[in-house]
């Protein structure tokens, strides 16, 4: 699948933003009002900023961005529509939570419930993003049990590293933040490794023979493509540039995640290392997301010479 930069930016930025937002909600639930207005506002600004940048960038790849509002209408059948609805709804509890948690509005009793609702909605939104991909039967590498968990855990891990990084700047860094981030990064590392094992071993059920129905006659090969230069289907669904570098890039993602882990460990000695950890985790998420697209083979490639999918 063609890795559109706008979609990579959207899923990683909004993933980290929602991860951070979910953790802030839980922080509010646990501790009540934020320790300082500035800290709360910076946290909320970064979380909602990443989410908003992500959502805006996802509309850049639309043919008609001015019609994007229509995407909120088909939530009964479409995961993309559900994602849009969840994303829009989440702003309401998130903004309310930001106002009471920071103390700009004095309503301490609302912090805990708003925090929980915000956290749940943030995770629901990331879940719907993952489901857009996981629900597509045409793409074996996405139609897997681990697709959605990877989205959730990577969002939380990058969000957690961001929270630790911001906290270190405000001298609010706590050991617990580092431990949580380390646990989430470790979970991301293990899940992603398991995901790659899973897609490598998943059976390739569809063949050129079953796609053309000519298997009853004999083995099928491509003789002539229908057009002289690549068409939309080949460019969008037949993207195969990254495949030869896939092994190297997978290792690169694991190394970046491991380095983020080490940086988090180092943050226990010097808290500012959490900022480095956040940068490394985000870089890992970007490469991971790029690979997620580039490695995914679409069934339609069977009509264009792929032997199985």
């Amino acid at each position: 699948m063609h890795p559109a930069y706008s979609v990579i930016l959207f899923t990683t930025a909004s993933g980290a933003g929602y991860g951070l937002l979910a953790l802030l909600g839980l922080v509010g639930f646990n501790h009540g009002q934020a320790s300082s207005v500035a800290f709360a506002l910076v946290c909320m600004f970064i979380a909602l900023g990443l989410i908003t940048i992500g959502l805006l960038s996802s509309t850049f790849h639309l043919g008609h961005p001015e019609r994007a509002w229509r995407a909120l209408s088909q939530w009964r059948s479409s995961w993309l529509s559900r994602e849009g609805v969840a994303a829009v709804i989440t702003y309401v509890p998130a903004l309310a939570f930001g106002l009471v948690w920071s103390g700009l509005i004095d309503a301490p009793r609302l912090i805990a419930p708003l925090g929980v609702v915000t956290a749940v909605m943030a995770m629901v939104t990331v879940f719907t993003t993952g489901m857009i991909y996981a629900s597509l039967k045409t793409i074996r590498a996405w139609n897997q049990m681990l697709t959605v968990p990877v989205y959730l855990v990577l969002g939380l891990a990058t969000g957690s590293a961001l929270l630790a990084g911001i906290a270190s700047l405000f001298e609010r860094f706590q050991v617990f933040q580092a431990v949580l981030t380390i646990a989430l990064l470790l979970a991301a590392l293990i899940l992603k490794f398991a995901y790659w094992r899973m897609i490598d071993e998943a059976p390739r059920d569809h063949t050129m023979e079953s796609a053309t129905g000519l298997g009853s006659i004999g083995t099928v090969g491509q003789w002539e493509v229908p057009h002289t230069s690549e068409n939309y289907v080949q460019k969008e669904m037949g993207y195969a540039v990254a495949r030869k570098h896939a092994k190297t890039l997978r290792r690169f993602v694991l190394v970046l995640l491991a380095l983020a882990l080490l940086a988090m460990l180092a943050s226990l000695a010097l808290s500012y290392f959490a900022i480095l950890a956040a940068a490394l985790a985000l870089a890992a998420a970007v490469v991971e997301r790029w690979l997620f697209f580039a490695e995914a083979q679409h069934v339609v490639t069977l009509f264009y010479g792929a032997k199985s999918a």
Binding site: L214, I217, T219, G221, Q222, E224, V225, P226
Partner: peptide, 9 residues
């Protein structure tokens, strides 16, 4: 789109 396939019997 009109493809051409080669079938080996």
């Amino acid at each position: 789109r009109i493809h051409g396939f080669e079938v080996k019997e």
